[in-house]
Design a protein around this nucleic acid. Sequence first.
RNA 1: GGGUGCUUAGCUCAGUUGGUUCAGAGCAUUACCUUGACAGGGUAGGGGUCACUGGUUCGAAUCCAGUAGCACCCACCA
Length: 877
Amino acid sequence: MKAPKNYQPAEIEGKWYDYWESKGFFHSEPDGRTPYTIVIPPPNVTGILHMGHILNNTLQDVLTRRARMSGLNACWVPGTDHASISTEAKVVAMLREKGISKSDLTRDRFMEYAWEWREKYGGIILKQLRTLGASCDWQRTKFTMDADMSESVIKVFVDLHGKGLIYRGVRMVNWDPAARTALSDEEVIHRETQGKLYYLRYMIEGGDGYVVVATTRPETILGDVAVCVNPADGRYAALRGKRVTVPLVNRSVPVIEDDYVEVEFGTGALKITPAHDVNDYVLGERFSLETIDIFNDDGTMNDRVGMYVGQDRFAVREQIAKDLEAAGLMERVEDYTNKVGYSERTGVAIEPKLSMQWFLKMESLAKPALEAVMDDTVRFVPAKYKNTYNHWMSGIRDWCISRQLWWGQRIPAYFLPATAGGGYVVAETPDEALKLAREKSGDAALALADLRQDEDVLDTWFSSWLWPVSVFDGIRNPDNADIKYYYPTNDLVTAPDIIFFWVARMIMSGLEYRGGRPFGAVYFNGTVRDKFGRKMSKSLGNSPDPLDLIARYGADGVRLGMMLSTSAGNDIMFDEAMCEQGRNFGNKIWNAWKLVESWRDGAVAGAQPESARLAGEWFEAALSKALAQIDADFAEYRISDALMTTYKLFWDDFSGWYLEIVKPAYGAAIDPATLARAIDFFERLLQMLHPFIPFVTEELWHCTRERSADDCVTVSSMPTAAEQRPEPLARFDLMREAVTAIRAIRRTRNIPMRDAIDLKVAADENYPAELAPVLSKMAGLASIEPVSAKAPDWDAFIVKTTQYFVPVGAAFDRDAELEKLRGELKYQQGFLATVMKKLSNERFVASAPPAVVAAEQTKRADAEARIAALEQRMGSI
RNA sequence: GGGUGCUUAGCUCAGUUGGUUCAGAGCAUUACCUUGACAGGGUAGGGGUCACUGGUUCGAAUCCAGUAGCACCCACCA
């Protein structure tokens, strides 16, 4: 196959993905090879691709493709998450547009709508990942609400309940009034919020005067049951044992004393609303106070107190402030900034609410999971996240796992009728539940219809925490071939913001259900920000559409752009220029091939020039060095470094030097040996590049020679590093320096490359004589002749310790040359002085390692040689 | 309020246990080049008091302390 004339990413990318997939290259089954497994962080089933996905999935694809080419059995399991709150919210919104209210529907009917919605809009993101080139094993695609996945979740719930780790109870939880469900602590985001501090007067009973209480939430006075002061606060000593009247509500409440109250803050007097504040709840329990819940589930006022009924909490706040003012009970109002909790999903302010929920005890699960990370059984990259993890795991609290939603796995708890003694049973199936219920109640006549299943579903994370196990069916069938082969997975690539939601809990469940870590390493990728460092968001409109970027720069270009500037744990400042750089690199690869291809078409039999042979030896060593470096980079998850090494190898060493050296003169043909070697190098480079830039490398792979249908770079074997040979590389670098210096002379003397020039060399051990043919070709030399260091009026330069001269005839400027030499001499003398200072320092010689002292002595010898050469030259011109 | 991390060239970042010319890379930038793969390119350059202050050391971008700024995480001061 011959490459089209120009590099047009859009023209080549589409076909290759379909081809790879049709060949089944991405599908994995257990076999004799070592597995390499990644499970995708499942995106929301109704989500669409954003820049964060591009970063996250490109990283996974690079790792997966590299593993696949390295002889491992690579398996990247894709899938989606049912995301119960946000998906249910979307379905509710969709129904509302149709004029249907969720409350008008039965649970079953709602679920039908939700599944329909998922069928229609779910999984778009998985198609988009194909566009990016993600080499997932699509035959293994999972959804957290697939029947088998849900079964696993239920099985785990039942198991943990049986172990006594799951309990049900009334607790103060984070209530989301928009989604009308409880949330876990992790789903609450605390943000500084500009508010007001209201100072309210509570009249003292049986006397005159009042006590002033400061609050940010005056609407909650409807639920006040006490006023609390610090017993050590002398100002309020007279209040001891008194009662006060809640403003407007006119409820008589006691004054209680507790040192929880800060004397310094506000007025030192605190109103107590046990139903709507976590701390107040604690105090309420301590003092056996009543709890008065004043809100409906949606954040409006209920009829418990009979005031402001049905009005929203924030409207009530404004109204009640006015009413208090009118009643003369408002002392003053101050601007005040405090932290308020918001729902991670709906964005509304969280309402602390007392309610009956299911909880998972975390302590015993967390302990081994903490150890696994601290001792690097699970390696965190970068390691700094171990601190974060440690901190959270050490102070972990129980996990509220119930949600008042329908979209999700329904909690498998079945309540017995009061007539059968009440209580509940937990079971994987209704039949099992009935059996247990009959045993529990002793009532053999109990029917399924008598049991009432819990209405709540489980937190989405209660299914995704099983992901690395459940995608291989390791919960239901713990001994199946897949789980035994693929588990534990190798790398997890994810964002640090879900370290607690997901990563920590997967480690817990993996240890609990597989007895071992779920993955060997966790690579945390940073947040994608715009070039000003701002988070990408819809409201700012600063997030580019990834598909649009791919259309303009190619998936290859976008991937490269991302990988060029990402290091683990660091945010990525995205700039479209990065994609441009990526596309330009694709173009470079393309055109390099076009050059080689043009030689192939005109090759004729002939002997290999010495310069080409030497270049081949050198590039072989350079390639091997790069391979070793790349291996080291990947071992440390330094993906961008690995890419940069490959990038420079291709652009600078291969294109800039190797191809230029072996390039035949204009109109001349190439010899077969050189051509074969050039193609061989090019193919190996394609393989090294492929994990990063899969499409163009596959296209060109099929250009370098005739290939069978299955012969794709995607499934080829990655080249491996040969024994390292630093010597030839160092010699080549000396030669390159000479070439650069000669080019500089050409530039200053205005000598074009087509005019061959003569080079004189005062050869010493640092002169790479064996590379003379290469030097000659790259510098455009007519001849290279030995010369004594005593040089006449020629331009000169020194490489390491070797003196080179270029006769430039009348163009030689003696004064300018002397000036240059004086400058150079001064620099060298200064350098020598610093070296001598060290060497003459007895303490340095005594305490520095011998190798360092020896190095300084070498520096001294080299500097002295250069100075001698410079002085000699200054004397001779 | 507590914790963690960061601050190196215009931008994005490397710099592993202090010591080879350690002050680097890519991009951007400057000059020149309409040369025969590629102007999405080539060649040759310029550019930094390593945030600040003190300390340890023969020697500090690197270790220690403090200061300033930034980021993130955790936390029940109404």
